[in-house]
Every structure is written in structure tokens, then in C-alpha cells.
Simulated assay, not measured.
Amino acid sequence: MSDTWLPSLRTATPQEGYDLAVKLSRVAVKMTQPDADARTRLREVYENDASALIAVSAVVATHFQTVAKANKYWADT
């Protein structure tokens, strides 16, 4: 992964901001567990676990708060 994969938190719209929040979450998982086979095996465990899926939503929401603040909540749109 390139050292500059995230040049900015700025996005044009809230939708782009949410997409970026999801990407931040996914990249964090890849950086934490770089082995794709291990991630695939683990997915079988959490994909049917409601608590794990809710936790994912919480992580994305936290990232979205950060992105929204960086974009001044898209006040100029």
C-alpha cells in the first residue's frame, strides 16, 4: 500500500464523505490483518454475528464524524 493513499479528508459531498469513511474502515482492517486469506476466514465468523456487524457500523460512524468535521459538515453545499 502506498504511503500516500489518503491525500485528504476533503470530499465534495456527504455521500463521498461516507464512502471515504467506509474506505478508512476497510483500510484499517487490511493494515491490521494484511493476510487476505486470514481476512476471508475471519469474514465467515463475523458475517453472521449481529454484534460484530453493529461494531462495524460504529467504526464507520466514527470515521464519518471525522470526515464530516474536516469538511465543515459540507456547510457550503
Rank of each mutant, 00 (worst) to 15 (best):
M1A: 07
S2R: 10
D3S: 08
W5A: 03
P7W: 11
S8I: 02
S8T: 14
S8N: 03
L9W: 01
L9H: 05
R10E: 07
T11N: 12
T11L: 03
P14I: 10
Y18K: 07
D19H: 07
L20T: 00
A21E: 00
A21H: 03
V22T: 00
K23W: 08
S25F: 05
R26N: 04
V27K: 00
M31E: 10
T32K: 12
Q33F: 10
Q33N: 11
Q33W: 05
D35A: 10
A36T: 01
D37N: 06
T40R: 15
L42N: 14
E44N: 13
E44V: 08
E44Y: 02
V45S: 04
V45A: 08
D49V: 06
D49G: 11
A50V: 14
A50R: 12
A52E: 04
L53K: 14
L53P: 13
I54G: 05
I54Y: 11
I54A: 15
V56M: 13
V56K: 14
S57C: 09
A58C: 02
V59N: 14
V60H: 03
V60M: 09
T62S: 14
T62P: 11
F64Q: 04
F64G: 07
F64A: 09
T66W: 02
T66L: 11
V67Q: 09
V67F: 08
N71K: 00
N71C: 09
K72Q: 14
K72T: 14
K72S: 12
Y73C: 02
Y73L: 12
W74M: 09
D76V: 05
